[in-house]
Design a protein around this nucleic acid. Structure first.
Lengths: 337, 337
DNA sequence: CTTGGCACTCAGAGGAGAAGAGTGCCAGAT
DNA sequence: ATCTGGCACTCTTCTCCTCTGAGTGCCAAG
């Protein structure tokens, strides 16, 4: 029901609107893109596109603006992801290659994405589910307080304080530490609960309370909390975007971890990009923003997600190219470390 | 040269302007505060205050607005820090008491400050200079890659990846780890360089390269980098503030660690509050913002700083009260852990 | 199906005028 | 010597008006 020319018109409208930020009319359209027809013809096409909900008029005597549905069609069928320039690729590579630990990789990634896309970048810390335990450390820091540190093979370090509610001897701690390391070395994090299920029964009665406490903290910190850590960058780019929505609402939404989690979406196939446009977003105050996200990971299996958030009127091909490229390089870095 | 009534007028102007966000005229001033004189008298006082640079007029037929100099006088001589309500104190206490590790303390603190003051909160991670080494861990994560983890008595965990550029045996690692722990246990971080200066000479030739590499990374990560970590929260509050400056500039400044460091100022006496008003700030694009900061720490010695940033037209007594109170409670929490 | 012509609509710019808040100054009162 | 009421004056801001121009929809002809 939409012939080729109408699609070309829609594409032209999206591209023009994205670059000028102004409603685009039939005349400017034929001037800028050489469609071989007259403005009147374009007007007819526009009328159809509007009727079908792909474009809209801010007011009667203005040009057209793409709707969310219009952007959706554009992204799905009218555009191709734009590869980065060689210079950009090199810049990404060297910038990420210089990172010296996981924190640094993540913080560099978020800055990189923000700069490349000139939008707000969001990066989730790698999930622990695909990691295995490298080492467990148990350190007394006060008479009734321990610090539990778990180091994984992906270079991530989880720490957690433990209140024992009773004094604990150094021997008990050393014993438990040895036991934990013997049991867990190389163990997949997802297998930790099973592996340690019978731990309290394996220790002497005097150490049982301690073992139980440590175990519960360990399970809790590894299994529940770790997927929630997300960092954002480039918030200043929001101010440029000049969203119709109150900037404050968007900033507020961005400060809530839960919202961010849902924004990035489910961890899935890292080779596919998720694009959420305007009202497709799961949060009310992000009605005029779009999210481009993808998974990333050491191998072909995603361990977390990253993406950018910007006004619906963003340069989708370019943004998608940048997100995809950064995700790939981060994957390489993680695999290499 | 400024008599009591003129000071009272200045105080009233500041208070009114802060609460209404509108230039305040002589008539509204006598209406709202019961100074026992007529508007005309106030006008004379205002003329003097303006001549001396404490207040200014946005335009000829408008009321007066305090200048930075006016706020400075207000803060220094005309106001007292406002204590928090009992309810607020309880809220702070319970909110912070539930934190389970250092990361959590800091992130709760920043959220608390932002919420309490409805402004942007900035918290620096506790410096390591007052801490001592609790434990050093050295873990192989690849054939030529180690992870160095240092745990301090303040509950902070520093991690750093090390490239050895040559395969290292497990025995060498175990040996070095034992050596490091024996040497460093309980050692003040500031003393680490001295304590370890002769480390390379203490190991066999085969391990010397490794020891040197590890040592350099250890010193670097402990001595140089650790003071720079700062987190911010409540950026959404900036949008409400409606600064005359472009919001974007401020957001950009806030994303730069270096700027933030200089904003918070030198770590000094934790019992004193630093207030930087408008152009007193060390950064160009923060000309219309003020910073209220203070040190905090486990004992009477500050280990880091925290504060808030808001428009120059902020409620100084209330903000100062909140910052002081939060700093105290955080100190208590850190001391208790 | 496309095209040129034409009347129509409406947002936004620009200007004039009125309203109102606030000032500075002066002469008289305290 | 200081305070006060009165008054003229200065600006900003709000409203109302008109005008302009971009852009549209529709129609009849190619």
């Amino acid at each position: 029901m939409l012939d080729d020319r109408k699609l070309a018109v829609l594409r032209a409208i999206v591209e023009d609107y994205v670059s000028t930020h102004e409603p685009v009319g039939s005349k400017t359209l034929v001037d800028r893109h050489n469609l071989g027809v007259s403005p009147a013809t374009i007007r007819n096409d526009m009328a159809v596109l509007e009727e079908q909900g792909y474009i809209a008029q801010p007011h009667t005597s203005a040009g057209r603006v793409p709707t969310d549905k219009g952007y959706r069609l554009f992204v799905d069928r009218l555009s191709t992801i734009k590869p980065l320039s060689a210079a950009e690729r090199r810049a990404i590579e060297t910038f990420l290659a210089n990172a010296y630990d996981l924190d640094d990789v993540v913080s560099r990634t978020v800055r990189l994405l923000a700069q490349l896309t000139r939008q707000v970048a969001v990066v989730q810390y790698p999930s622990l589910t695909r990691s295995s335990v490298r080492h467990v450390e148990l350190v007394p820091i006060a008479s009734e307080r321990l610090l539990l540190v778990v180091i994984t093979n992906t270079g991530r370090v989880e720490q957690r304080a433990i209140e024992t509610h009773e004094p604990v001897s150094d021997e008990a701690i050393a014993h438990l530490r040895a036991l934990l390391n013997a049991r867990l070395d190389g163990c997949w994090l997802t297998d930790v609960p099973d592996t340690l299920a019978d731990l309290p029964e394996q220790v002497s009665a005097g150490e049982r309370a301690l073992a139980t406490t440590v175990l519960s903290v360990l399970l809790e910190s590894l299994v529940e909390k770790h997927e929630e850590k997300i960092i954002i960058g480039g918030a200043a780019n929001l101010a440029r975007a000049d969203l119709s929505q109150s900037l404050r609402d968007v900033l507020e939404a961005l400060e809530e971890q839960v919202v961010l989690m849902r924004l990035l979406g489910e961890v899935g196939d890292p080779s596919s990009l998720t694009v959420r446009i305007g009202t497709e977003n799961p949060h009310e105050s992000l009605r005029t923003t779009s999210v481009v996200a993808t998974g990333y990971g050491a191998g072909d299996q995603a361990v977390a997600r990253l993406g950018v958030l910007g006004p619906t009127r963003m340069d989708y091909p370019g943004t998608m190219g940048a997100v995809r490229a950064v995700a790939r390089y981060v994957g390489q870095i993680l695999a290499g470390s």
